[in-house]
Amino acid sequence: MKDMKMLEARNISKRFGGLMALEDVNISVAQGEIVGLIGANGAGKTTLFNVISGTYAPTSGRILFKGREITGMRPHEICRRGLVRTFQVVKPFRNMTVLRNVMAGKLFGKDRVKNLEYAREEALKILEFVGLAQKAHVLARGLGLADHKRLELARSLAADPELLLLDEALAGLTPTETVEAMEIVRKIHEKLQITILMVEHVMKAVTGLCSRIVVLHYGRKIAEGTPKEIAENPEVVEAYLGESIEA
Protein backbone atom coordinates (compact mmCIF):
# COMPACT_ATOMS: atom_id res chain seq x y z
CA MET A 1 0.00 0.00 0.00
CA LYS A 2 3.04 2.24 0.29
CA ASP A 3 2.71 3.21 -3.36
CA MET A 4 -0.96 3.98 -3.16
CA LYS A 5 -1.78 7.27 -4.81
CA MET A 6 -3.15 9.55 -2.14
CA LEU A 7 -3.85 12.38 -4.51
CA GLU A 8 -3.97 12.54 -8.26
CA ALA A 9 -4.79 15.74 -10.07
CA ARG A 10 -5.06 15.08 -13.79
CA ASN A 11 -4.85 17.75 -16.50
CA ILE A 12 -6.06 20.50 -14.27
CA SER A 13 -6.83 23.81 -15.94
CA LYS A 14 -8.34 26.84 -14.30
CA ARG A 15 -9.33 29.94 -16.20
CA PHE A 16 -10.37 33.23 -14.64
CA GLY A 17 -11.86 35.20 -17.52
CA GLY A 18 -8.95 35.76 -19.88
CA LEU A 19 -6.34 34.55 -17.44
CA MET A 20 -5.22 30.96 -17.58
CA ALA A 21 -4.19 30.45 -13.96
CA LEU A 22 -3.50 26.75 -14.37
CA GLU A 23 -2.85 24.96 -17.61
CA ASP A 24 -2.93 21.21 -17.88
CA VAL A 25 -1.24 20.57 -14.56
CA ASN A 26 -0.65 16.98 -13.46
CA ILE A 27 0.39 16.30 -9.92
CA SER A 28 0.28 13.22 -7.80
CA VAL A 29 1.17 12.49 -4.21
CA ALA A 30 1.78 8.97 -2.94
CA GLN A 31 0.85 7.90 0.56
CA GLY A 32 3.53 8.84 3.06
CA GLU A 33 5.26 11.45 0.88
CA ILE A 34 6.02 15.08 1.58
CA VAL A 35 5.83 16.87 -1.73
CA GLY A 36 6.85 20.50 -2.17
CA LEU A 37 5.14 22.84 -4.59
CA ILE A 38 7.21 25.83 -5.56
CA GLY A 39 7.10 28.65 -8.06
CA ALA A 40 7.29 32.43 -8.22
CA ASN A 41 4.42 34.62 -7.08
CA GLY A 42 1.47 34.20 -9.40
CA ALA A 43 2.63 30.81 -10.60
CA GLY A 44 -0.69 29.27 -9.59
CA LYS A 45 0.27 27.42 -6.41
CA THR A 46 -2.53 28.72 -4.25
CA THR A 47 -4.99 28.40 -7.13
CA LEU A 48 -4.03 24.75 -7.41
CA PHE A 49 -4.65 24.35 -3.67
CA ASN A 50 -8.01 26.06 -4.02
CA VAL A 51 -8.97 23.73 -6.85
CA ILE A 52 -7.85 20.61 -4.98
CA SER A 53 -9.59 21.58 -1.76
CA GLY A 54 -12.83 22.48 -3.51
CA THR A 55 -12.83 26.27 -3.15
CA TYR A 56 -12.86 26.55 -6.95
CA ALA A 57 -14.05 23.99 -9.45
CA PRO A 58 -11.43 23.38 -12.14
CA THR A 59 -12.26 24.57 -15.66
CA SER A 60 -11.19 21.13 -16.81
CA GLY A 61 -9.44 18.13 -15.40
CA ARG A 62 -10.11 15.63 -12.65
CA ILE A 63 -9.03 15.23 -9.06
CA LEU A 64 -8.87 11.86 -7.35
CA PHE A 65 -8.32 11.43 -3.63
CA LYS A 66 -7.54 7.91 -2.44
CA GLY A 67 -8.71 6.73 -5.84
CA ARG A 68 -12.11 8.41 -5.58
CA GLU A 69 -13.26 11.32 -7.67
CA ILE A 70 -13.58 14.55 -5.67
CA THR A 71 -13.77 16.99 -8.58
CA GLY A 72 -16.46 19.60 -8.02
CA MET A 73 -17.15 18.65 -4.41
CA ARG A 74 -17.64 21.41 -1.85
CA PRO A 75 -14.79 22.12 0.61
CA HIS A 76 -16.56 20.56 3.60
CA GLU A 77 -17.15 17.31 1.75
CA ILE A 78 -13.51 17.11 0.75
CA CYS A 79 -12.40 17.88 4.30
CA ARG A 80 -14.58 15.14 5.73
CA ARG A 81 -12.90 12.63 3.44
CA GLY A 82 -9.56 13.44 5.00
CA LEU A 83 -8.07 16.10 2.71
CA VAL A 84 -7.51 19.21 4.81
CA ARG A 85 -5.85 22.49 3.91
CA THR A 86 -4.34 25.44 5.72
CA PHE A 87 -4.47 29.00 4.45
CA GLN A 88 -1.57 31.15 3.36
CA VAL A 89 -3.13 34.16 5.02
CA VAL A 90 -4.13 32.55 8.29
CA LYS A 91 -7.86 32.47 8.91
CA PRO A 92 -8.30 31.83 12.62
CA PHE A 93 -11.68 32.23 14.29
CA ARG A 94 -10.43 35.38 15.99
CA ASN A 95 -13.00 35.86 18.69
CA MET A 96 -12.95 32.27 19.80
CA THR A 97 -10.37 30.79 22.15
CA VAL A 98 -7.49 28.83 20.70
CA LEU A 99 -9.05 25.72 22.20
CA ARG A 100 -12.43 26.36 20.56
CA ASN A 101 -10.72 26.88 17.21
CA VAL A 102 -9.17 23.45 17.44
CA MET A 103 -12.37 21.93 18.82
CA ALA A 104 -14.13 23.10 15.68
CA GLY A 105 -11.75 20.98 13.61
CA LYS A 106 -12.48 17.97 15.78
CA LEU A 107 -16.24 18.52 15.71
CA PHE A 108 -16.63 19.04 11.99
CA GLY A 109 -13.68 17.35 10.31
CA LYS A 110 -13.36 13.71 9.44
CA ASP A 111 -14.24 12.44 12.92
CA ARG A 112 -17.41 14.51 13.25
CA VAL A 113 -17.28 14.22 17.01
CA LYS A 114 -20.64 14.93 18.63
CA ASN A 115 -19.51 15.16 22.23
CA LEU A 116 -18.10 18.57 23.15
CA GLU A 117 -16.21 17.29 26.17
CA TYR A 118 -14.44 14.65 24.13
CA ALA A 119 -13.63 17.18 21.41
CA ARG A 120 -12.18 19.43 24.08
CA GLU A 121 -9.84 16.72 25.39
CA GLU A 122 -8.70 15.77 21.91
CA ALA A 123 -8.15 19.42 21.02
CA LEU A 124 -5.96 19.88 24.09
CA LYS A 125 -3.82 16.93 23.01
CA ILE A 126 -3.35 18.49 19.60
CA LEU A 127 -2.43 21.84 21.13
CA GLU A 128 0.13 20.01 23.21
CA PHE A 129 1.46 18.43 20.03
CA VAL A 130 2.05 21.76 18.27
CA GLY A 131 3.27 23.46 21.45
CA LEU A 132 0.35 25.82 21.95
CA ALA A 133 -1.23 24.21 25.01
CA GLN A 134 -0.38 27.00 27.41
CA LYS A 135 -2.34 29.42 25.21
CA ALA A 136 -5.43 27.22 24.94
CA HIS A 137 -7.69 29.74 26.64
CA VAL A 138 -6.43 32.87 24.93
CA LEU A 139 -8.62 34.41 22.23
CA ALA A 140 -7.11 33.62 18.86
CA ARG A 141 -6.90 37.30 17.91
CA GLY A 142 -4.36 37.79 20.68
CA LEU A 143 -1.77 35.49 19.12
CA GLY A 144 1.38 36.52 17.28
CA LEU A 145 2.15 35.30 13.75
CA ALA A 146 4.17 32.25 14.79
CA ASP A 147 1.39 31.08 17.09
CA HIS A 148 -1.20 31.81 14.41
CA LYS A 149 0.66 29.47 12.11
CA ARG A 150 0.72 26.82 14.83
CA LEU A 151 -2.98 27.30 15.43
CA GLU A 152 -3.68 26.92 11.74
CA LEU A 153 -1.78 23.62 11.84
CA ALA A 154 -3.49 22.46 15.02
CA ARG A 155 -6.96 23.22 13.69
CA SER A 156 -6.29 21.32 10.47
CA LEU A 157 -4.83 18.40 12.38
CA ALA A 158 -7.95 18.27 14.52
CA ALA A 159 -9.94 17.58 11.36
CA ASP A 160 -7.92 14.36 11.15
CA PRO A 161 -6.40 14.59 7.69
CA GLU A 162 -4.79 11.82 5.74
CA LEU A 163 -3.45 14.40 3.32
CA LEU A 164 -2.58 17.87 4.55
CA LEU A 165 -2.16 20.78 2.15
CA LEU A 166 0.08 23.37 3.76
CA ASP A 167 -0.06 26.76 2.09
CA GLU A 168 3.08 28.59 3.17
CA ALA A 169 2.98 27.41 6.73
CA LEU A 170 6.38 28.98 7.34
CA ALA A 171 6.09 32.30 5.53
CA GLY A 172 6.94 35.36 7.57
CA LEU A 173 8.57 33.52 10.45
CA THR A 174 11.94 34.40 11.94
CA PRO A 175 14.78 31.91 11.38
CA THR A 176 14.32 30.37 14.84
CA GLU A 177 10.57 30.10 14.42
CA THR A 178 11.09 28.57 10.99
CA VAL A 179 13.22 25.81 12.45
CA GLU A 180 10.61 25.13 15.12
CA ALA A 181 7.80 25.08 12.59
CA MET A 182 9.77 22.72 10.33
CA GLU A 183 10.14 20.43 13.30
CA ILE A 184 6.37 20.41 13.77
CA VAL A 185 5.81 19.60 10.09
CA ARG A 186 8.31 16.77 10.35
CA LYS A 187 6.55 15.46 13.45
CA ILE A 188 3.20 15.62 11.67
CA HIS A 189 4.64 13.51 8.91
CA GLU A 190 6.56 11.01 11.01
CA LYS A 191 4.53 10.60 14.17
CA LEU A 192 1.05 11.12 12.78
CA GLN A 193 1.83 9.47 9.43
CA ILE A 194 0.14 12.22 7.51
CA THR A 195 0.95 12.75 3.85
CA ILE A 196 1.79 16.35 3.05
CA LEU A 197 1.69 18.58 -0.01
CA MET A 198 3.22 21.95 0.81
CA VAL A 199 3.53 25.25 -0.96
CA GLU A 200 6.58 26.97 0.35
CA HIS A 201 8.88 29.86 -0.47
CA VAL A 202 11.43 29.07 2.20
CA MET A 203 13.75 26.90 0.11
CA LYS A 204 15.66 25.60 3.08
CA ALA A 205 12.42 24.12 4.38
CA VAL A 206 11.43 22.64 1.03
CA THR A 207 14.78 20.97 0.44
CA GLY A 208 15.00 19.91 4.07
CA LEU A 209 11.56 18.33 4.28
CA CYS A 210 10.42 17.24 0.86
CA SER A 211 11.29 14.05 -0.93
CA ARG A 212 9.97 15.42 -4.19
CA ILE A 213 9.37 18.89 -5.58
CA VAL A 214 6.98 20.14 -8.26
CA VAL A 215 7.65 23.49 -9.91
CA LEU A 216 4.90 25.67 -11.34
CA HIS A 217 5.60 28.58 -13.64
CA TYR A 218 2.85 30.76 -15.08
CA GLY A 219 0.29 28.07 -14.42
CA ARG A 220 2.22 25.23 -15.99
CA LYS A 221 4.27 22.49 -14.42
CA ILE A 222 7.82 22.96 -15.66
CA ALA A 223 9.68 20.46 -13.53
CA GLU A 224 9.37 17.67 -11.03
CA GLY A 225 12.00 15.68 -9.15
CA THR A 226 14.15 15.36 -6.06
CA PRO A 227 15.38 18.57 -4.44
CA LYS A 228 18.79 18.01 -6.02
CA GLU A 229 17.39 17.49 -9.52
CA ILE A 230 15.27 20.61 -9.18
CA ALA A 231 18.20 22.71 -8.00
CA GLU A 232 20.16 21.67 -11.09
CA ASN A 233 17.33 22.04 -13.59
CA PRO A 234 18.22 24.93 -15.92
CA GLU A 235 14.62 25.77 -16.73
CA VAL A 236 13.82 26.13 -13.05
CA VAL A 237 16.84 28.28 -12.40
CA GLU A 238 15.84 30.51 -15.29
CA ALA A 239 12.24 30.72 -14.10
CA TYR A 240 13.54 32.04 -10.83
CA LEU A 241 15.36 34.73 -12.85
CA GLY A 242 18.76 33.38 -12.14
CA GLU A 243 18.37 33.47 -8.39
CA SER A 244 20.27 30.69 -6.77
CA ILE A 245 17.72 28.19 -5.65
CA GLU A 246 19.69 27.30 -2.53
CA ALA A 247 19.29 30.82 -1.21
Binding site: T55, R74, P75, H76, C79, R80, V84, F87, K91, F108
Partner: peptide, 9 residues
Protein backbone atom coordinates in the same frame (compact mmCIF):
# COMPACT_ATOMS: atom_id res chain seq x y z
CA UNK B 1 -14.21 30.01 4.10
CA UNK B 2 -12.08 28.45 6.80
CA UNK B 3 -15.20 27.03 8.43
CA UNK B 4 -16.20 25.46 5.13
CA UNK B 5 -12.72 24.03 4.61
CA UNK B 6 -12.84 22.58 8.11
CA UNK B 7 -15.81 20.39 7.29
CA UNK B 8 -18.70 22.66 8.23
CA UNK B 9 -21.55 22.60 5.73
Amino acid sequence: DAANSLGIN
